[in-house]
Amino acid sequence: MIISTIAFYLFAALTIASAFMVISAKNPVHSVLYLILAFFNSAALFVLLGAEFLAMILIVVYVGAVAVLFLFVVMMLDINFAELRQGFLQYLPIGGLVGIILLIELILVVSGWVLTPDAIKIGMETAPLVSNLTNTEQLGQVIYTQYAYLFQIAGMILLVAMIGAIVLTNRKRPGVRKQNIARQVYRRPEESMAVRKVEPGQGV
C-alpha cells in the first residue's frame, strides 16, 4: 500500500522535525507544544504498526496527563527571553562537546552490536499469528498472566515513589484554617445559635 508508506514517512518526518523543535525553540511553552506534536506523531506510527492499544495509551498517559503538567509548570515560569538568548553562544562550546561525546558513544555502541547466529535465526522466523485476538487482549495476557508478579512489583515501586515524594514535600504548617466538612455537617443549631431577647436601645 503506497498510502501507508507515504503516511509512515510523513509521520516519521514530523516526529523528527518536532523533536528537533523541542530543543531548539526559544520559548519553553512552544517546546512543550512541539513535544506534544512529537507524541502525537509517534502515536500515529504505532497505529500504522497495528498497535492501536499502545497508541491510545501513549496519548492518554503522555499527552493527556504528563504534558499537561509540564505545560502547567512551564507556563508559570517567569522567564526573560532576551536573557535566555544571550547565554546561547556562551554555553555553545560545552553543550556542543557533551553532544559530540554522546554521539560518539552512540555510534560506538551501535557499531559494536553483534547478534549471535541463533538470535538472527529467531528474528528470521515469523512469529506465530494469533489473529483472532486484538492486541489489547494479547498485551493483557502477557502482562497480567505471564508477568503478573513483575507487573505488580513495578506498580508497588511506583506507589512507594509517589508516597515518598508526597511525604518529602508535605509540610505541616500550624495555624492553617481548614474546612472540616464532617464537623460542619454534624453541627446542630443548639450548639451554634442562641436566640436572645434584646431590649430596644440596649444592644446585646
Binding site: 492501536e52 491510545m56 496519548i59 492518554v60 493527556g64 499537561v68
Partner: peptide, 17 residues
C-alpha cells in the same frame, strides 16, 4: 475500532489543551 473506549478517553483528556 477495537479500542473505541480508550480513543474517547484519550480525546476527552486532550480537551484541556
Amino acid at each position: 475500532i477495537n479500542v473505541g473506549g480508550l480513543y474517547l478517553f484519550a480525546i476527552s483528556s486532550l480537551g484541556v489543551y
